[in-house]
Design a protein around this nucleic acid. Sequence first.
DNA 1: AAGTTATTTAGGAAATAAACTAATTACATA
DNA 2: TATGTAATTAGTTTATTTCCTAAATAACTT
Lengths: 114, 114
Amino acid sequence: MNDDTLNQDAGGSAQRVFNALSSLHRRKILAYLSASSLTAGEIAERFNMSKPSVSQHLTVLENAGLIAKEKRGQFVHYTIVTNNLINTLNGFAQEVCPVSRPLKRESEAKAKSK
Amino acid sequence: MNDDTLNQDAGGSAQRVFNALSSLHRRKILAYLSASSLTAGEIAERFNMSKPSVSQHLTVLENAGLIAKEKRGQFVHYTIVTNNLINTLNGFAQEVCPVSRPLKRESEAKAKSK
DNA sequence: AAGTTATTTAGGAAATAAACTAATTACATA
DNA sequence: TATGTAATTAGTTTATTTCCTAAATAACTT
């Protein structure tokens, strides 16, 4: 069993996602964005933190593909992107949770027999 | 909206779980444990790292409630505990993913009307 | 008892992350 | 153009994390 057997991308997408999620501030920002898009300023105002710090967190979230930004005039609007989040969490859960294996094997077997 | 509105435990369970998952090494260890329990030595041998380092990672995972240890004679056997992992990932996905809200509201409404 | 193996603890060096202030860029408007 | 507002970048400080080696603890074996 070599090191690639464990299917995880070192500096890759999953790493960036999990790293982004390791901060409570960033998880709160994501939750805060779950209802609607907001500007950087609105987000900063919500949290007891300097604007540059919030900006830094937003960059981390964006690099992880968890949010997207759109500049409209003077403002930058941030929107949550749930796709990558859900795929990453789900992918990891599948990888780690033996519970799902029987069904997975069943499905793979079925696919082959076609 | 005060700061408790965002339902996340600061130094609590979710924080420890997400923090544990932020390390590729630790995610690999979890994946490696997904098939069967292993001793600390077997885990250390699998990864290109000193035993004390692995031991440290195992402690982090254990404090997050993601693995459990059992001493049998000279050996310490580690086992994955999927419960806390799945609950935490799922709980966060629910909190952040607006997609699930309509169904959630529907279900809540139904519960109230009983 | 003495030696061997398994694992963890202690301590310290190097890298990373997180926060702030100050300065800068970009846009809007008087 | 000058002024104000929004947001980011730069640079610094402090705290945390991660890794290692060496030493300690615990349990087997002869």
